[in-house]
């Protein structure tokens, strides 16, 4: 479908927010299946790099390590824990650099997450602001 989308106008970034329940078992180093588990993530990241879609990504330590800085009327307070007490927590993220939401959704689908959710959010474009 030539001409449908102007290539110059397709610089979009999306945040893939990986959300999962930390109490669900995931393979630890030394466990059976751990190497395969890690290999799937490595392969995923490599695929993204090779596709030119990789815009960064990290895994986060558990929610028990989180500190929340809450801003209210100019004052700040510290809270021990994540910003919301939920069963599911942000476990990591990727930034994908692709043309459209469909491409971002495809990367979100391909994430080797056993059980969990991936929120896909467009990042504000830096041009035009």
């Amino acid at each position: 479908m030539p001409g449908l989308i102007d290539a110059k106008d397709t610089d979009m970034k999306y945040l893939l927010l990986i959300v999962s329940d930390p109490t669900l078992p995931s393979p630890e180093p030394g466990d059976e299946g751990f190497d395969e588990y890690m290999a799937a993530w490595t392969r995923y990241t490599q695929d993204m790099v090779e596709a030119g879609a990789y815009g960064g990504g990290e895994a986060l330590q558990g929610p028990e390590t989180a500190t929340t800085v809450r801003h209210e009327a100019g004052a700040t307070t510290l809270v021990d824990g994540p910003f919301a007490e939920l069963k599911e927590h942000v476990g990591g993220y990727y930034v994908v650099d692709v043309d459209t939401l469909d491409d971002a959704l495809e990367w979100a689908r391909r994430l080797p997450v056993g059980t969990g959710a991936v929120e896909v959010r467009p990042i504000f474009p830096t041009d035009g602001f």
Binding site: M1, L4, I5, T10, Y14, D99, L101, D102, V120, R121
Partner: peptide, 8 residues
């Protein structure tokens, strides 16, 4: 905002 494409 999310650039949902008009593609087939």
């Amino acid at each position: 905002a999310a650039r949902i494409p008009l593609t087939i």
